[in-house]
C-alpha cells in the first residue's frame, strides 16, 4: 500500500499541473477525494481499458463532477488517455477534457457536473445489474455540500427500498464548500444516522487513509440486503500542506507561482515519506 500512497501524491501533482495549465479547476476537492479514487480505481474496481464493454465490469459515476481533475489523473493512470495530453489540454478551447466528466471520453460512464445526479443514476445501474444477475458492483462519489440536493435523498430512499447490496455510495466529507463550512452553509449533522435511517449500512473512515478506505470497500462487499455508504472523512486540500489544507477558498483557487512551488514541494516530501514509511 505504500507505493499506492506515494502514487496518490504523484496524481495530485498531475492535478496541480492541469490546474496550472488551464488556470482553472477545483483543486481543494480534487486533493480530498484523491485517496478514494485511487483505492477504487487502482485497488478495488473491476474497470480497465479492456473491459469497458463487458457488462460484468464494475461501474463508477463521479457525482461530484467538479473534481474532474482528480478523476482525469486516475483515469490517465489506468491508461484511458495520456497523462501529458490531459495536462496540456484540460479546459483549453475546443478540448475534449471539459471541466466536468463527459462520457465521450473513454472510461467515463455518465456526464455529470450538476450535483445530486450520481446516486439516483447508480440506483438504476445497480437495478439493471441485479435484474441480469450480473456481478457488477456500482460506485458513486458525492461531495458533502452536494448532500443539500434533494435528489440525493431520493437516491438514498430508492437504494434502501430496493435493498441494492451491489451499490456503494461514498461521501467525500471534507466539511468545506464554496461559501464556508458545510455546517455553516447547510448542516450535515448526524449524517451516519440519517443515511442509516434510509436503510443503508454506513461505515465511517478516515478518507485520506488508504487502508481504512480499502477495508471499508471490502466490508461493503460482504453486506447483504442493503446498500453501503462510506462516509470518508477527508481534509479538503489534503497533501497541499499548510498552504491549502482546510481552507475554503481553495475550492477553486488557482495557485500562483509561489504557491505552486510550495505545494509541489509538499507533495514531493509526502511522496518520499510514504515510500519510506
Amino acid at each position: 500500500m505504500k507505493e499506492l500512497k506515494a502514487k496518490t501524491f504523484e496524481l495530485r501533482k498531475d492535478v496541480l499541473d492541469m490546474i496550472r495549465s488551464a488556470k482553472a479547476g477545483h483543486i481543494g476537492g480534487d486533493f480530498s477525494v484523491m485517496d478514494i479514487l485511487a483505492v477504487l480505481y487502482l485497488k478495488q474496481m473491476n474497470i480497465s481499458v479492456e473491459n469497458m464493454d463487458d457488462p460484468n465490469r464494475d461501474y463508477f459515476v463521479m457525482s461530484k463532477g467538479h473534481s474532474v481533475e482528480a478523476y482525469y489523473a486516475v483515469l490517465a493512470e489506468k491508461g484511458f488517455f495520456k497523462r501529458e495530453e490531459v495536462i496540456s489540454e484540460f479546459s483549453k478551447f475546443g478540448s475534449k477534457f471539459i471541466g466536468h466528466p463527459n462520457n465521450k471520453l473513454p472510461g467515463i460512464e455518465m456526464n455529470s457536473g450538476s450535483l445530486g445526479h450520481g446516486l439516483p443514476v447508480c440506483v438504476g445501474i445497480a437495478l439493471a445489474a441485479r435484474k441480469d444477475h450480473r456481478e457488477s458492483r456500482v460506485y458513486t462519489v458525492m461531495g458533502d455540500g452536494e448532500l443539500a440536493e434533494g435528489s440525493v435523498w431520493e437516491g438514498f430512499m430508492a437504494g434502501g427500498h430496493y435493498k441494492l447490496d451491489n451499490l456503494c455510495a461514498v461521501i467525500d466529507r471534507n466539511k468545506l464548500q464554496i461559501s464556508g463550512t458545510t455546517e455553516e452553509v447547510m448542516s450535515q449533522e448526524n449524517l451516519e444516522a440519517r443515511v442509516e435511517a434510509f436503510g443503508w449500512h454506513v461505515i465511517q473512515v478516515n478518507g485520506n487513509d488508504l487502508d481504512e478506505l480499502n477495508q471499508a470497500f471490502e466490508e461493503a462487499k460482504t453486506v447483504k440486503g442493503k446498500p453501503t455508504c462510506v462516509i470518508a472523512n477527508t481534509i479538503k486540500g489534503f497533501g497541499g500542506g499548510s498552504v491549502m489544507e482546510n481552507k475554503a477558498p481553495w475550492h477553486h483557487k488557482v495557485p500562483n507561482d509561489e504557491e505552486y512551488a510550495q505545494i509541489t514541494e509538499e507533495l514531493e516530501r509526502r511522496k518520499e515519506a510514504a515510500l519510506h514509511e
Binding site: P55, Y59, E109, M110, G116, H117, P120, V121, C122, V123, G124, I125, A126, L127, A128, A129, K131, D132, S136, G150, S151, E154, G155, M157, A158, H161
Partner: peptide, 28 residues
C-alpha cells in the same frame, strides 16, 4: 413485475434511475 420499477412520487429519481437502467443495458 420483474420488468416494472416503481419509484414513488419522485420524478427526479424516476428520470435518473431510468438513465442508470439504460446505462446498464435496459430499455426504460
Amino acid at each position: 413485475p420483474e420488468q416494472a420499477v416503481e419509484v414513488g412520487i419522485a420524478e427526479q429519481n424516476l428520470v435518473s434511475i431510468s438513465a442508470g437502467l439504460a446505462k446498464g443495458g435496459k430499455k426504460p
